[in-house]
Design a protein around this nucleic acid. Structure first.
Lengths: 230, 230
DNA sequence: GCGCTCATAACTGTATACAGTTTGGAATTC
DNA sequence: GAATTCCAAACTGTATACAGTTATGAGCGC
């Protein structure tokens, strides 16, 4: 029996998971030996995986000092969300031009089926998975695998910012319900009508609203970090 | 005296250069030992650099079979150009909204200064560098470093496709002159007037025109590959 | 000649070792 | 006490070795 998954792949996935679970704090230096113990892999394959994450923008690297978790500044968050707008709106435009009606209808059905789950979900991780899944499918309708790859890279980095946001929403239960699918529905209506402007405007404002919420959540989370220990 | 550049970085840059110089043919398997001899680096740092290139989409990887140059299919080329449209048009939109007049004027000046070089350049490599430089600066006006990173990644992969195209143009001297900056000027006029629609329409059609040319050039290059040896 | 088997060569995957660099703190000076 | 120097420990960078897998091709039966 031959192996199907490379060890580097396994380590790489584990590292992404750790990043999403706040295992690394922004700007934290990553100790390769300690990490290799945790992951059950030696430093050689670990470093190969870390280099992939550097190339993807998850981590930074300094010569002779090693790998660092990327700092989480407001302007970085803004950049990531703006890049998402670029990727998703162009994908939506392409989908309006060429996605078959049947696939658009399938995504509508999916959204309808998921709506109860969406509204009853209380676990932020679950909600986030549902939301990411919708956006992934939307971009898949463009048929462009580079746009999909870019979205997945951005979402990988945005994920833990959004988790901060969703946890805050659950705690405060203020304003917009987190399980609100109306924005997604508006996007799909525009898409079904092949109305590029209506669809992209809806999507753009949806993502920008999410960005404002996330930025605020991170601001609050940071301010709490600076509360002195008693 | 301390080292300023990591060996992995050096190897990584050398590999990108080799890719742009057609050192690897599409779908070609990459022999690590042979490559490490050429680059003067051992396999450990070489593999770290190769992993970065996999993460960036330059190469593919198969377990126990190693690294491969990415195949060059028409749909892959289409995906890359569409992704460029996504990145550049959104960057341009953001630049229309917030780039200072002074920086827009500086880019206009740059274009005017470069125009003679552009029109007299006959070396495809030189022309390409000039063109990429303009597009990079345009995206920089958005102030978004993620969009810039994405553009540089896409251009790194598109570069050798465009070289095929530019070499064909030089040989045939048909249709549009390669050193035509009028499209760039139209984009900047729209930007200076803060006219998002005019600017992005001009940019979109410019990139799509380039894509059609490049796709055709690759099609021709491929058809010549299949001419049987005599 | 064509397909199959198996031995071997070539190559990839990674553990280990060690060299070079940075870091943190003790010792020293003012 | 604060600043500085210097040394040891910790960590990163990579060469090397070898184990495990894949590719190649000779030999063989048909």
């Amino acid at each position: 029996m031959t192996k199907r998954e490379s060890n580097v792949d396994r380590v790489y996935e584990a590292l992404r998971q750790m990043a999403a679970d706040f295992a690394f704090k922004p700007d934290q230096r990553i100790n390769e030996s300690a990490l290799s113990d945790v992951l059950g892999a030696r430093r050689t394959p670990l470093r190969e995986a870390l280099n992939r994450l550097v190339a993807e923008g998850f981590l930074t690297f300094q010569i002779n000092r090693g790998f660092f978790c990327r700092p989480l500044t407001p302007s970085y968050i803004l950049d990531l969300y703006e890049a998402r707008v670029a990727v998703e709106c162009e994908a939506l435009r392409l989908a309006c031009l060429r996605a078959p009606d049947s696939e658009i209808a399938a995504l509508s059905d999916y959204l309808d089926r998921m709506e109860p789950d969406y509204q009853s979900a209380t676990d932020p991780v679950e909600l986030l998975a549902l939301d990411e899944s919708f956006h992934n499918r939307l971009v898949q309708l463009s048929g462009n695998s580079e746009l999909l790859r870019m979205l997945q890279n951005l979402n990988g980095r945005i994920r833990y910012i959004r988790l901060i946001d969703l946890k805050r929403m659950r705690d405060q239960a203020d304003g917009a319900a987190p399980g609100d699918v109306s924005a997604h529905k508006r996007v799909l209506e525009g898409l079904a009508a092949r109305d590029v402007v209506a669809a992209t405007d809806a999507l753009r404002s949806h993502i920008e609203k999410r960005r404002e919420e996330a930025t605020e959540a991170v601001r609050i989370a940071f301010s709490q970090l600076y509360v002195p220990d008693d």
